[in-house]
Design a protein around this nucleic acid. Structure first.
Lengths: 221, 221
DNA sequence: GTCTATATCGGGATAGAC
DNA sequence: GTCTATCCCGATATAGAC
């Protein structure tokens, strides 16, 4: 194994110390001083590697996304049918982030400010967002439900939005082991799937135009 | 007019100064020291009336809700049909809060933490939330669409949730005069109305159970 | 009860020495 | 690259004026 440069090692040490502290003491209670102390460096050194506490969250977010890819691949491949694939893909993420719900909460809070770099909607997180949307595109392709052409292009983005909703619910869910979120995920995946099935019927033709437009408004700046 | 006590006047002065500063300098940039200075009182006095910066936001929220009631009443009474009433009720709120979008943003951010007193979902804001839900119940009654019995009880809460979604979009909407939100509101109100019309048809009977359950999960502790 | 003035603390962030 | 010293701000506390 190639010896990691001292810089890489230090930044890694700081990130690990931060995540430990977030888990032990909570995100808000973990101060930069504590994090630096735990990592064995001075406060200024921590700021040398991470411009802010939020930047640590961002680093965690990016690392997490990379680490998650194989598990998502497995979940999406093995589950049968759109409903199951959708549930599995989101489930995998919730399980991964379970020990760090508080950190994810910081991300979601940032979502209220579109200019905040940590916002899931911001330009800084585009790569991760696009990667996620690509998964939903794949799920729709393999899900075995015929999607009307006018909707097809926009649906992956809409499902990503759906995922954000589930994640928001999850970080605010105080039930034991987030049991409510488990039920919410199953029920809402069932409903989404049913709605997609309905979408092909003539009955819903009058709704299709506003829905396509709505998705356009949400996505298009 | 009864002379307001000095205390009322001072607390009002502080609240007004805070709102001015939020508008001028942004919510984050406005410090308690600045607010107190602008109100012409000492920092300690500001804390005497408002335990925290958040408490000022809460006071604003409560005052706003009271001031909004007549306008909502007018909007709901005058608009014809469910779609129009729904749009009008939400529109009125957005217009009222337009000069203070940043303050509302603080409220929405708090929503990511269920225990935060400012959260729209918290016990501290129950009165306001219930008041809003009552408006949506009224809108459903007067809207002229027959609602299946199993759904009826839960729908006002679901519409309140819908409103929260619109507000979230609005606070993150940077388009000129929030034009995107205007389109979003119209389109989504149309879709919601169409869905409610569909809800009475036999076709959707299989979806009704999971939907009712889903609403139960979201509302139920 | 309604304030002023001031001191103090904790924590995020930064500047500049080394 | 790393550390020390420092700044700013939210928040708390306190002593005392009126």
């Amino acid at each position: 194994m190639q010896p990691t440069s001292k810089a890489e090692e230090t930044s890694r040490k700081i990130l690990d110390a931060a995540l430990d502290l977030f888990r032990e003491a909570g995100f808000e209670n973990a101060t930069m001083r504590d994090i630096a102390a735990k990592a064995g460096v001075a406060t200024g050194a921590a700021y040398y590697y991470y411009a802010s506490k939020d930047a640590i969250v961002m680093a965690f977010y990016e690392r997490a996304w990379e680490e998650l890819q194989p598990a998502v691949e497995t979940a999406v491949s093995q589950a049968r049918g759109l409903e199951a694939k959708l549930t599995a893909a989101i489930r995998v993420k919730l399980e991964y982030f379970a020990p760090n719900r508080e950190v994810l909460r910081a991300l979601v809070r940032a979502g209220a400010d579109p200019k905040h770099p940590l916002s899931p909607f911001s330009p800084d997180t585009t790569a991760i967002r696009q990667g996620d949307i690509a998964w939903f595109a794949r799920i729709l392709e393999d899900g075995g439900i015929r999607i009307p052409a006018d909707l097809a292009a926009h649906l992956p983005g809409a499902l990503w939005f759906f995922q954000m909703g589930v994640i928001f619910f999850w970080i605010t869910d105080e039930s034991t082991r987030q049991a409510r979120t488990t039920r919410l995920l199953h029920l809402s995946a069932k409903i989404v799937t049913s709605l997609l099935r309905l979408a092909g019927l003539p009955l819903t033709r009058s709704m299709r135009k506003p829905i396509v437009e709505l998705i356009g408004v949400v996505k298009g700046a």
